[in-house]
Design a protein around this nucleic acid. Structure first.
Lengths: 165, 165
DNA sequence: CAGTTTGTTCAGTACATTTTGAACATTATG
DNA sequence: CATAATGTTCAAAATGTACTGAACAAACTG
């Protein structure tokens, strides 16, 4: 424990607003609230913070903090920094939108796109060994799906270029 | 009630797969599962379906069905069709990706972008009446946020163009 | 106009996800 | 080696969201 009483001061108004901004973003991206809180705190922090810094200032549990940092690391939204003479891990927010977006896309979006692709292929197979009055109509519909799938696949990298600069 | 025993046959393999595809999509888009089910059913159906058709074939409640159809209408993912001599509402899936995507963007994304914009403006105000050692550093960070915000705002319409054709 | 059909709303419940906190593993320190 | 520091994991609890089903409203029907 830290000897000094207020080594980790409570959050100020500015910090609270910034954190809330990222909490909302996390919500949109279907990430846990705590992930948004932690990223927000690191984003606005002047110095690298360790797990306990985050936990205490955000008033969340050790487990959530550990999990949240893991998720943020998983798509490169934060970086660890080495602090000489300290064996804790310290973190800073990655601020390159390109890096974060492409990490997020690769980790959280691509898998969905991929499994969607597989499912459509499966649907195509089912349809191919089917015959009935509506066969032609169904063929058109599945073709339509395949078309959407292709457009989505092509759009994703372009979107990343667009956002990432 | 329908006099015929099997006027609404159970879902076939093809239908189930297509519905599951849209259930996964709904999940990615943070929409209720039932919304995905209903859209999937309408997408693959050969004819317009009414509320009870959906409810019975998907085995979900009247309330969910009503809510789901409302949501799908709200961003133009389905259209109502008039069937002479029947006072029920019938629905078909809208299949223009452009229409669906822009409806979804306007209804479910824009509000978030907008409130994010407001929050960043608020943060800017807070910062402007603040002075401290780290003022300059904070200024840079908030500028960074404003930059992200602008890029997201500009990207959204371009993405729609990109996807919609 | 009483009864039926159709669709909406909403309080309560069911369900899924996140958070907690304690137990555990690992590495450092004296 | 015993103790402390650091971080992870996971079962249980808390939380938030979607679903159900019944009550209701509105519009049609005979």
């Amino acid at each position: 424990m830290n000897g000094v009483l207020e080594a980790r001061p409570a959050l100020g108004e500015l910090e609270r607003e910034v954190i809330e901004l990222f909490v909302r973003m996390a919500d949109v991206l279907s990430l846990p609230r705590s992930v948004g809180e932690i990223y927000g705190l690191l984003f606005i922090a002047s110095d690298p913070l360790c797990l306990d810094d985050c936990r205490i200032r955000l008033n969340i549990s050790k487990g959530s903090t550990s999990q949240g940092l893991k998720i943020l690391r998983s798509f490169g939204a934060i970086r660890t920094v080495y602090i000489p003479g300290d064996r804790k891990d310290y973190y800073v927010a990655e601020t390159s939108l390109r890096k974060i977006a492409s990490g997020f896309a690769g980790e959280q979006i691509q898998p969905h796109v991929h499994s969607g692709k597989e499912r459509i292929a499966r649907i195509r197979e089912i349809l191919d060994q089917y015959s009935g009055d509506d066969r032609e109509l169904l063929d058109e519909k599945i073709e339509h799906l395949e078309n959407w799938q292709k457009r989505a696949s092509k759009a994703l990298p372009l979107i990343l270029k667009l956002i990432g600069g």
